[in-house]
């Protein structure tokens, strides 16, 4: 714990900002190289593809997932994009469902004390229900289907969106509504130009908050009932006891989740809400 107390001294001793960046970059690279090195050493020591395949072995598997297996005569030319797109489309449609359900609930909760009390417990409970529940329930109700995972993702993202919309509606600037009335704006205009723009960032924040959870639950429903998708591939290779392929798909799962979250969503948000970058605090 004593380390806590020397933190600031340590930081100032590192010198200039550029030097600091270089050091941080170096440490980051070291971290990743170290990670792969430890993985490699462990795999050599365990010497079992079924337990821990080497990084090289997993890389081969990734190559096959993208380009197909050259030793197989019925080379399918790679199965990645089909499965990846199946997963992504489900998540996107799931969010459409989640926004469609969560937004009206959020409006009710945001503007009315009774509905807030009525919906608060159900929404909070929906937020802490284990993901397993959604995955198996949609399997029971819909069987192996396209609708099931979409609905599961919708249900899991709904509480996040509802809570955010409720906050957004509660926070609509009363001063702007007053100003609009003073200048004789119609209710329709106020809704379109004041209420919707104030609430929209909150809907998006709900999507961002629930994104990684929805992505996880989406894969889980594929584990239980799907014929395509990243989750389905992990399950299939688990049953075949093909450890290199399991790890390869898990790696791809994480990489694409982080890419979608960090780059795609953040970029869309920045574009949509350009005005927020200059908004003053408080």
């Amino acid at each position: 714990m004593a380390g806590v107390l020397v933190d600031s001294a340590e930081a100032s001793a590192l010198g200039t900002a550029a030097g600091l960046r270089r050091r941080r970059y170096l440490a980051l690279v070291t971290g990743w190289v170290g990670f792969v090195a430890i993985w490699w050493l462990l795999s050599v020591w365990m010497d079992s593809d079924a337990r821990l395949p080497s990084p090289g072995r997993v890389w081969d598997e990734v190559w096959i997932i993208f380009n197909g297996d050259p030793t197989n005569s019925r080379n399918d030319g790679g199965i990645f994009w089909n499965n990846f797109l199946a997963s992504v489309i489900r998540v996107l449609l799931g969010f459409v469902v989640g926004v469609a359900m969560g937004t009206p609930l959020g409006f009710l909760m945001g503007r009315n004390r009774y509905w807030r009390a009525f919906l608060k417990s159900p929404v909070m409970i929906a937020g802490s229900i284990p993901g397993l529940t959604y995955a198996v329930m949609v399997l029971v109700v819909f069987g192996i289907s396209f609708v099931g995972p979409v609905l599961a993702i919708g249900l899991i993202s709904m509480p996040y969106i509802a809570i955010n919309v409720a906050e957004g509606v509660g926070g609509v600037d009363k001063g702007l509504l007053n100003m609009s009335r003073s200048f004789g704006r119609s209710e329709k205009q106020m809704f379109r130009d004041v209420v919707v723009p104030s609430v929209l960032p909150f809907i998006f924040a709900g999507v961002r908050l629930s994104f990684s959870l929805a992505w996880k639950v989406g894969q889980l429903t594929e584990v239980f009932g799907a014929s395509q998708g990243i989750g389905f591939q992990i399950r299939r290779n688990f049953q075949l006891f093909n450890m290199p392929a399991v790890i390869a798909w898990i790696g791809l799962f994480i990489i694409f989740m982080l890419v979608l979250e960090r780059f795609v969503l953040v970029r869309i948000e920045r574009k949509l809400f350009r005005w927020r970058q200059w908004e003053r605090e408080g």
Binding site: M1, V4, D7, L28, G34
Partner: peptide
């Protein structure tokens, strides 16, 4: 507590 540990393992 440590900047170096953070850079190494927080990812």
């Amino acid at each position: 507590a440590s900047n170096i540990a953070r850079a190494l393992i927080s990812d």
